[in-house]
């Protein structure tokens, strides 16, 4: 009846002496792509380590892919591909051999590891560059290589820690596209820790938001986005008149120059907008439902939790 969950934890707690890094987490993460969000110090890395079976939990339990994190760490790590945030490659090795080695470390035969390495590097777009040493690579290429190392054994779950960190627009686009492809075409699950909302929104259907070790939000992104809907319009000519006209009709309007957002009441909202425009002789060059972004969602959640946060740059947080 219950479709199996990717990750499940019950009262998961991890303390280092008096400091509680993970506080009574009850997570239900389904298969598919999930974003792991939260500021530095929220417990993201501790959480990932417990998932990888590398640190012992203080209390509570958890399972990942059906394996108990307390006792079956080795199995877990054979079935997961991990893409770390920082440098994790030997700069003097050729990409192909680095990926081959990472496969051998899993127990793959050297020649099988080599052919998988070719496939993985091809997949991440480094087919032409695989015989170059890692130190000659740009950041984007290094990230892609790390991803290839994580994919070499075709794991069920890929854990990516800040995969688009430090990438320029083009490389970032490609990385996200690759991750998306892995989820959709490869039918793999991805757990993506990131502070870049746009990226998470693009790749993931679900999110888990941690804050100070506690769970602040979890669920499907579209379910969480029940923010008051607005209709955004771009007008041309007599904008002020248009704004007044709408206000007269009792609509709630926000305006920035030629761009306005009208609070959606019901389907008649569009008609109200257009009739007001007709009356004011204003052109409505664009009209569409404004979709709240994940960034907006995050800000609202943090506000609700009582934190004064200016933007999700707070996730880059603590520079001490």
């Amino acid at each position: 009846m219950v479709e199996s969950l990717l990750i499940e934890t019950r009262n998961l707690t991890k303390s280092y002496g008096p400091h509680v890094a993970l506080d009574d987490l009850n997570l239900n993460i389904p298969h598919g792509a999930t974003g792991l969000l939260g500021p530095n110090g929220a417990g993201k890395s501790t959480f990932l380590k417990t998932m990888l079976g590398l640190i012992q939990v203080t209390s509570g339990e958890g399972s990942i892919l059906g394996y108990d994190i307390r006792t079956e760490g080795e199995e877990i790590r054979s079935k997961i591909g991990y893409m770390p945030e920082y440098d994790a490659l030997n700069p003097k090795m050729d990409a192909i051999y680095q990926v081959q080695y990472s496969g051998e470390l899993l127990g793959m035969n050297p020649n099988i590891a080599l052919s998988r390495a070719h496939q993985a590097l091809e997949y991440v777009g480094l087919g032409e560059q695989r015989y170059r040493t890692v130190e000659t690579f740009s950041t984007g290429m290094k990230q892609a290589t790390k991803l290839a190392c994580a994919l070499v054994h075709d794991p069920e779950l890929i854990i990516a820690d800040e995969p688009s960190n430090g990438l320029d627009a083009k490389a970032r686009e490609f990385m996200l596209q690759t991750l998306e492809n892995t989820v959709r075409q490869g039918q793999k699950s991805v757990l993506m820790a990131s502070h870049l909302m746009e990226d998470v929104e693009r790749v993931c259907e679900n999110i888990v938001l941690l804050h100070k070790g506690k769970l602040a939000a979890q669920g499907k992104i579209e379910d969480l986005k029940a923010i008051d809907k607005e209709v955004e319009i771009h007008v041309w000519g007599h904008a002020t008149k248009m704004e007044e006209g709408l206000l007269d009709k009792g609509m709630k309007v926000r305006r920035e120059g030629r761009v306005m957002r009208v609070r959606y009441q019901d389907d008649s909202t569009y008609h109200t907008i257009l009739s007001t425009a007709a009356k004011c002789e204003t052109q409505i060059r664009k009209m569409h439902d404004h979709e709240a972004s994940l960034e907006d969602l995050f800000l609202v959640i943090m506000e609700r939790l009582g934190y004064d946060v200016k933007g999700s740059e707070a996730l880059l947080g603590d520079l001490s």
Binding site: Q218, I227, D296, L299
Partner: peptide
């Protein structure tokens, strides 16, 4: 955690 969120953007 499961209930939807409201607010302005």
């Amino acid at each position: 955690p499961e209930s939807p969120v409201t607010g302005q953007t």
